[in-house]
Design a protein around this nucleic acid. Structure first.
Lengths: 338, 338
DNA sequence: AAGAGTTTTGCAACCGGTTGCAAAATAAAA
DNA sequence: TTTTATTTTGCAACCGGTTGCAAAACTCTT
């Protein structure tokens, strides 16, 4: 019968009650330590009685493993990120790690957040974002924390793990898809011009189109990965003349842009074709049905966590970078291919 | 010049380099401790030199304050929750607390998560959900952790803080709004039948309508707070006959339901009126424009954090419960009031 | 310059655990 | 049964900090 006193029971108290040494109790709670079944059961009985749970933080002092993992992100406004969060927290907790969240806002000083995670002795950090300033993830590594940059762009620093998606190839896929529909005037509608994700997708997009000089290509950027930014940018594009189809570098932007188009009485996909990026849950909703490029979120995250646990268990500093492929999900915002 | 050795510098090392005692270093890093300016600067110089940052976890051992706050939630699929997350993490970090996330899934044992947070010595727990089994938050309190239940329902346990919204009154507001539009056949489309939020909203809704026996009232439940659940339930309702307007107890359900209605060629709001709940960001998007009941997320969260810090600084166990009022946001899914 | 009052300092014990090592207990071999 | 090999145990030191307390070092008076 566990007893709920207001003070937490400690190792020593359990030891006293069980009539064994403190080390014995410690070992009883350590996987694979040398304890006889007899003492173990004595200890377990006493622990049960006192409602004892070991203090992970105290333990971390000697083991130098806290089980804490910094999860730093800045995209708390894109619905896709809820999925990212869900997956990351789940995955981490199944391998016994606890995510310590850092919400990077404009006010928070990036350097301060590095220090913060240092102070909390996190075992590692995962940076989940494709819109952070280049080199942001580096500062963690420089401070001596293992880091995996999920959704990041490959870098030539070899102390940083990158598990991302192949944005460049995804841009190519989008371009080829538009070509397949026979368009000869297409546009790119990106997110923030400085975001690596937008830049890479654009690069791939243009890469393919550069082989088709007869096809007119325009490039635009929405200021943000948001509905309003997509809406506003498309609204202004409508006034200045439209292409036949657009590759929008984000689903939310796509939805904003489509909203502006419908507002101006354009029919999708009959008059204007749209292909998005991300394949967030909402894209499949019956009232949206956005044709888009699917990003293998779960794979990226699973791989990131595998990478993480690898580093932690082997305690190696050996890193790797891996880009996963994306694929098109056909829905209703581009004409069906015959 | 801070030096980045692979090993983290410790208090003793700083003390040695600065030529002072360990206590001196400790005090130099403690707000309001007794240190002369001379030693403080010696210490700071040395700390700088070694890139020293105090180990919060070690400190917590004696101070009994970790700065960690458990943030437990289970609604990682409702877009509204991204906003909740954003606000909570921001608010917590501005008051110097770190959110330790627990994603309650079907697989995770609730009791295990309580233990987990105990092991990590969290200063407090905030439970952010309105769909958890009644009494879930209690187990934290029973384990001796201060708890505030954000978005919770008032309880007669007086050891639990509840900062929520007045769901019952919100239900009344919705009912009155539908009455004001002159409907005489209205419906309620809830989320999970057991979720307290759904039950309370229904209670208020029926409370008002019970005064109008001539008005026909139907009650339905979608199994989940999801698009599909809303879509499916509405689809089946369409077959069995519709009311003139519905109060959907969640925006996502509303959107799913509207999608089904449009699919069946009903015009909103001309033929069927819809009022939602939450006022999530997306509800205001130009392609949705859902008339809905706004939930003061930021207030709930701000108040929750205030409540939290109050308990932590005063170290009091005195709790309170507070329900904040909701209000209608008129958009385009109900006929405008004259 | 000595005494009283105030600040600053270091010592040592403690927070709640872990762990190397040698002694004690047990099991296996002779 | 004694000897030897193996497992289990407790001691004590340590992880990286904090803090009560008394001594040391300053002020300020007189």
């Amino acid at each position: 019968m566990s007893q709920h006193s207001s003070k937490r029971a400690t190792l020593s108290e359990v030891a006293a009650l069980a009539g064994v040494s403190r080390s014995a109790v410690s070992r009883a709670f350590t996987e694979g330590a040398s304890v006889s079944v007899k003492t173990r059961s004595k200890v377990e009985r006493a622990a049960q009685e006192l409602g004892y749970r070991p203090n992970v933080l105290a333990r971390s002092l000697t083991t130098r493993k806290t089980g804490l993992v910094g999860l730093v992100a800045n995209n708390f406004h894109n619905p896709i990120f809820l999925e990212v969060f869900d997956l990351f927290t789940r995955q981490l907790q199944t391998v016994g790690l606890r995510p310590l969240i850092v919400n990077l806002t404009e006010e928070t000083d990036p350097q301060r957040s590095v220090q913060l995670l240092l102070e909390y002795q996190v075992d590692a950090v995962v940076v989940a974002s494709s819109t952070l300033p280049v080199g942001f993830a580096d500062s963690f590594s420089e401070a001596g924390i293992s880091v995996v940059h999920a959704f990041g762009r490959p870098t030539n620093r070899k102390d940083i793990n990158v598990i991302g998606i192949d944005n460049i190839e995804a841009g190519r896929i989008a371009a080829r898809r538009l070509l397949a529909s026979g368009y000869n005037d297409v546009g790119f509608l990106g997110g923030p011009e400085k975001a690596t994700s937008t830049r890479d997708r654009l690069e791939g997009f243009l890469d393919v189109l550069s082989d088709y000089p007869k096809i007119k290509t325009r490039v635009h950027f929405a200021g943000d990965y948001t509905f309003e930014a997509g809406f506003d940018e498309m609204a202004s594009m409508i006034l200045r003349g439209l292409s036949q189809a657009y590759f929008c570098a984000d689903d939310v932007i796509s939805i904003g842009a489509m909203s502006a188009l419908r507002r101006a009485n354009f029919r999708i996909p009959q008059q204007i074709g749209i292909i998005g990026f991300n394949d967030m849950e909402m894209a499949g909703w019956d009232n949206i049905r956005l044709t888009t490029i699917h990003q293998p979120l779960d794979q990226v995250i699973e791989e990131s966590v595998i990478c993480l646990t690898g580093m932690l268990t082997l305690n190696t500093r050996k890193t790797y970078q891996k880009l996963l492929p994306c694929h098109i999900v056909e829905r209703d915002t581009l004409p069906a291919l015959s």
